[in-house]
Amino acid sequence: MAKQRSNQSSRILWAAFAALLLQNLVIPVVSFASFEEQKNYYTPDPHTGSPPTGSSTPPYHATPTHGSKPPANCGNPPKGGQHHDPTPASPSGGYYPHPPSTPTPTPSTPSTPTIVTPPTTPIIDPGTPSTPATPTPLPPFTCNYWRTHPGLIWGLFGWWGTVGGAFGVASAPGLGTNMNLLQALSNQHTDGLGQLYREGTASLLNSMVSKRFSYSTTQVKNNFATALSSDEAAASQAQLFKLANEGQLKPRA
């Protein structure tokens, strides 16, 4: 019986010893695992400068575990008083490179296109066709032409030229000698004297403007004065003057 108790007490002691040993072994393993986890996922010290060029593993400060000694410069800024923002660490333990700065594109204002107007066909105004000038007729002229161009008469005798003064007669039967030459050309008498005044005045004017007229100025005056003797003589001479005024008699040489 005593032997059984002794064996039971030995087993209890060995179990307690094993449990104590196992506890001492588990604590370092857990501490080591926690340290490794903090090593891979560390928090960079904001006061630590940029990692040196060419180094694959940047320096870091791991969070100290229980019983570990803190870093020598913990809480003290680096020399020079400069603070650098640490580059965030990648999950593998390295640093991400700073992305290159991309310039902001500035939109350019499109230039206003130049509109070229096509040349237009010039409009040529032909204008109003000019009326060809009426050729000036050549004498001899009829009594109607002289009557409708009183300016020509005034140019030769003036406004106050009379039948008596133009033909050189002091008296004349019928119409008299005081009427002017325009009135003599415009009279409407159908008798021989009326005809003689119209055609005789036109013949006198034609003889003064044309050297080729059938009668000279002197011949016109003399024939006019002779024809005043009777109405029949006046009518006969008036017919000859009419033919000469129309250019139907042979021109004077």
Score class of each variant (00 low, 15 high):
Pro132His: 01
Ala166Pro: 08
Met1Cys: 06
Pro119Met: 14
Arg147Ala: 14
Glu232Asn: 11
Thr134Tyr: 04
Glu37Ile: 08
Asp191Gln: 07
Leu240Cys: 06
His66Pro: 07
Gln23Ala: 12
Thr117Pro: 08
Thr190Ser: 06
Gly80Glu: 13
Ala238Asn: 07
Gln183Ala: 14
Pro88Met: 01
Ser50Lys: 08
Gly174Leu: 00
Phe224Gly: 08
Leu196Ser: 08
Gln237His: 10
Val163Lys: 03
Thr226Gln: 10
Tyr95Lys: 06
Pro78Ala: 15
Thr121Gln: 13
Thr217Trp: 06
Ala19Trp: 03
Gly80Val: 11
Phe213Met: 03
Thr142Ile: 05
Val220Gln: 03
Ile27Tyr: 09
Gly93Tyr: 00
Pro107Val: 04
Ala15Ser: 11
His84Met: 13
Asn178Gln: 04
Ala235Ser: 13
Tyr60Ala: 05
Ser210Trp: 09
Pro118Ile: 15
Leu20Phe: 15
Pro173Trp: 00
Gly200Asn: 04
Thr109Leu: 08
Ala33Ser: 10
Lys242Thr: 01
Lys39Thr: 14
His98Glu: 02
Ser55Glu: 15
Ser111His: 10
Gly75Thr: 07
Thr43Lys: 07
Pro88Phe: 09
Ala225Arg: 11
Phe17Val: 12
Glu246Leu: 02
Leu25Asp: 05
Ser9Cys: 06
Ala227Val: 09
Tyr197Thr: 01
Ala202Leu: 04
Thr201Lys: 10
Thr162Glu: 06
Gln82Leu: 14
Ile27Gly: 01
Ala16Cys: 03
Gly247Arg: 06
Ser50His: 07
Pro28Trp: 04
Ala238Lys: 04
Gly194Ile: 09
Lys250His: 07
Glu199Gln: 15
Glu199Asp: 10
Ser230Leu: 00
Thr121Glu: 15
Asn7Ser: 14
Trp160Ile: 00
Ala225Ser: 14
Leu249Ala: 05
Trp154Thr: 11
Asn144Leu: 11
Leu185Gln: 06
Trp154Lys: 08
Ala133Pro: 11
Thr65Asn: 11
Asn7Gln: 15
Gln239Thr: 11
Thr120His: 15
Gly174Val: 02
Pro70Leu: 08
Ile27Val: 13
Asp191Val: 02
Arg252Lys: 14
Pro71Thr: 01
Pro126Lys: 06
Leu228Gln: 08
Phe157Pro: 00
Phe224Tyr: 09
Thr120Lys: 15
Val163Thr: 11
Gly176Trp: 00
Thr106Arg: 04
Pro150Ser: 10
Ser111Lys: 14
Arg198Glu: 11
Gly94Ser: 10
Gly194His: 07
Thr128His: 05
Thr65Arg: 12
Thr102Ile: 14
Leu196Trp: 04
Ala33Glu: 12
Glu199Lys: 02
Ala19Tyr: 02
Thr128Phe: 04
Pro118Phe: 14
Asn187Asp: 10
Thr121Ala: 14
Tyr145Ala: 13
Gln4Gly: 10
Asp191Arg: 02
Pro251Asn: 09
Gln38Glu: 04
Asn180Phe: 02
Leu182Phe: 05
Met1Tyr: 05
Tyr96Pro: 00
Asp85Arg: 11
Phe35Asn: 13
Pro58Thr: 03
Leu21Lys: 00
Asp45Cys: 04
His66Leu: 13
Thr117Val: 15
Leu185His: 05
Tyr60Met: 06
Phe213Val: 05
Lys211Thr: 11
Val29Asn: 02
Ala184Asp: 02
Gln183His: 03
Glu37Val: 07
Met208Val: 00
Ala253Lys: 12
Gln82Cys: 12
Tyr60Leu: 01
Thr142Phe: 03
